[in-house]
Computed example of a mutant assay.
Amino acid sequence: MRKTLITALIAAVALPAIAVPSVASAQNREVRRERADLREERRELNQARRYGDRRDVRRERRDVRDARRDLNEERREQRWGRNDWRDYRGRNRALYARGNWRAPFRYNQFRVGGRIAPAYYGQRYWINDPGRYRLPPVGRYQRWVRHYNDVILIDTRRGYVVDVIRGFYW
């Protein structure tokens, strides 16, 4: 019984660690494939410059441009986006459950560029692990802060609201 329990615990810890890199490696494979396509198109362009006529060179330039655009799109898809959390939230509803969270002040609808009091973005309201919720990474002197169901990105030095995501929690 004890060995079974230990094995189950090890599997529960190891499986998520194994599953995540497979997604990342699939994305890296796509980037590598796009890079290889771009190198091949450049080789063909050089060959057309040596042995081909103007139409061949024009066609190959267009192919190189398309391959470069495809590579850039693939790289862009891998970066964090503002709305990466939406699909993840749909699959992991319990993580975004509102719970029994209340602030000692009433709800205010903050806007980007506004200035707010430090009481609203004190350390007790910080989201310490924004990656857990698939929030975009923050810059220097910035923090994600929970305000009722909303999430606010604050410039902690000056108190300015940098970004607001309304209805983030259920």
Rank of each mutant, 00 (worst) to 15 (best):
R86D: 09
P104L: 04
L95E: 07
R35W: 07
D66Q: 02
M1E: 11
Q142P: 09
E40Q: 11
R65S: 10
P130E: 00
Y88L: 04
R62V: 15
V20W: 10
E41V: 03
G167I: 10
I116V: 10
W144T: 11
E30I: 12
A103W: 05
T156V: 14
D84N: 08
R59P: 00
V20K: 02
A11F: 13
F105D: 04
N83F: 14
I152W: 12
Q27C: 09
V13C: 13
A117I: 08
A26G: 01
A67V: 08
G114F: 04
R146D: 01
S22G: 04
D53L: 12
E34G: 05
D84P: 02
G139D: 01
R102P: 08
P130F: 01
I6K: 15
G131A: 11
A119Q: 15
R59D: 10
V31S: 12
E40Y: 10
D70N: 14
W144M: 12
E34N: 07
R75W: 06
E60D: 07
R157S: 09
R68T: 11
R29W: 14
G81A: 12
R115H: 15
I152N: 08
R49C: 11
P16Y: 06
D84Q: 05
R69F: 12
V13D: 03
A24Q: 07
D56A: 13
A97F: 08
R43L: 13
R58H: 12
P130Y: 00
F168E: 06
W144Q: 09
G52D: 08
N46G: 14
R2D: 15
I152G: 07
L71R: 01
V161N: 08
Q109N: 08
D155V: 09
N92R: 02
I165A: 01
Q123R: 15
G159L: 04
N92W: 02
R166K: 12
W170D: 09
R65L: 11
V151C: 03
Y141N: 13
D163K: 07
R79Y: 14
R86I: 15
Y107T: 09
R124P: 00
R58Y: 10
V151K: 02
I116T: 04
S22Y: 00
R106Y: 12
R115V: 15
R61C: 03
Y169M: 11
R43Q: 11
V138S: 05
G99D: 07
T4E: 15
P104W: 05
V64T: 00
A94K: 01
L45A: 02
P104S: 04
R143N: 04
D150E: 02
R29S: 13
E60V: 01
G113H: 06
D53A: 07
L9S: 06
A11T: 00
I116R: 02
G90Q: 13
R124K: 11
G167K: 03
I154T: 09
G113Y: 07
